[in-house]
Design a protein around this nucleic acid. Structure first.
Lengths: 239, 239
DNA sequence: ATAGAAACAGACCATCAGTCTGTAAGCGGG
DNA sequence: CCCGCTTACAGACTGATGGTCTGTTTCTAT
């Protein structure tokens, strides 16, 4: 009754940021449960306990809601990146390994969440949010990575063909890890921890060696953490 | 009037394959003009001169129509790949360069079409068909590329870290070329042919050197065609 | 106290993918 | 040559869903 009613309305009024977060919470939960294109605005409304008009007061369109979700998820990547970069100030190789180690650390600390994400994103109908996340994360990490590579060139220790292209390739290397992760998680779920650790270790070792080549470094320069860490991490998966 | 009418209907009946192609033609034209999500089934119907029921007799869903389009476009990649592979039977490096040269040849012969595709796919709302094409093309080229790399390993001439990963990276290298192509085409359209050729040449030269590194080959082994060819090609752009 | 702004409610609309029932065209057998 | 079956096709209809609009309530500043 938006027209002419003396009906009691009893609405809850909240600070925009709070309400926005509430809506995003609901949307994120629904997304993780059903996938993006199966989430309707009506669903989000109901889950967030707000009306149609209320929702569209905070989000201009469904697209806008997605942007909010992506931004929220990317925030983690930003914080992790910044944290990793702020505490090491050595030469380029140390910085690079610090960055990679920071990412590995985040992964280790959030395996379960990561598995959920990987599974959701591998389901059909989620290509768009997946790409959005990849692009957003890449936009965060890319400049940092490129800066490190350029520092390494200036330093005389790195010798890549092209800083930008190399950064891009390193990014696509980590993005291509997704399919391996699916397999790794499946193996871990099947209680085949050894095979799971093997698969992950082999992949990351290869990635490291490829980075060495791309950067013109001796083999073993770029280190992607270690096996025992992986085992501990994968053993920590719930169920 | 599908119910009860003595109305003259004068419908055209065609062989399924022919009608399908006609519908795909219409859909492709509309897609190239407006982008995928701006193309409605009603549009395609009208353009193809067929009714709703007729359309859905040939395509189960809009998704199915997209699959048809992708398959059609991928066919070119298949033919080009097969053609390039069938005529050279040297060692792995010769085969690899033959494959790359075949791709370059196709590009040179279809610059205008390529530009259209690049432009359409860079517009928002076309992420899904773009990814579909990338994945489909990759699925075609990947096994061939991987086979060549493995042959090179067996031969003792290639020394990559990992055949599969290297093939993936080479693919993502060529897919990442898209953004450069946008710039290249823009420059060429602005009549700055020198800058255009420069940008393309620099990119492809870098890609080649990176491939050398990935495959453990001496610099200059992997060749991505030549400058004069690019110039001729870019000069051939209409408008 | 009161006016204005901003948060919110909910009825309404438009678009569009997909369905359903019915009809005309071809084709093979008698 | 006709008849019946299959299949290509027509077009009205539906249901779901994203987005809008007008009106209402709550808060805040003066």
């Amino acid at each position: 009754m938006a027209k002419t009613g003396t009906k009691r309305d009893s609405r809850v009024r909240m600070a925009p940021a709070v309400r926005r977060d509430l809506i995003l919470d609901a949307a994120q939960a629904l997304f993780m449960e059903r996938g993006w294109d199966a989430v309707t605005i009506a669903d989000v409304q109901e889950a967030a306990g707000i009306s149609r008009g209320g929702f569209y007061h905070h989000f201009a369109a469904k697209e806008d809601l997605l942007s909010g979700l992506i931004a929220r998820m990317t925030e983690q990547a930003m914080q992790t990146t910044e944290a990793a970069m702020s505490q090491n100030n050595g030469d380029a190789l140390v910085q690079l390994n610090g960055l990679l180690d920071g990412a590995a650390q985040w992964t280790a600390d959030n395996v379960n969440e990561l598995r959920g994400l990987v599974q959701i994103f591998s389901r059909p109908g989620n290509e768009i949010p997946y790409r959005r996340i990849c692009d957003a994360d890449a936009a965060v990490v890319m400049p940092v990575l490129k800066a490190i590579i350029e520092a390494g060139i200036a330093e005389g220790t790195f010798n890549p063909v092209d800083a930008g292209l190399t950064a891009e390739l390193m990014l696509s290397l980590s993005q291509g890890r997704r399919e391996v992760l699916i397999e790794v998680f499946d193996l871990a779920s099947a209680n085949d921890l050894d095979a799971s650790v093997d698969a992950l270790d082999r992949r990351l070792r290869s990635e490291g060696e490829i980075c060495d080549r791309l950067l013109g470094l001796p083999v073993g320069s770029v280190a992607l953490s270690n096996r025992t860490e992986y085992r501990r991490m994968l053993a920590g998966l719930v169920q």
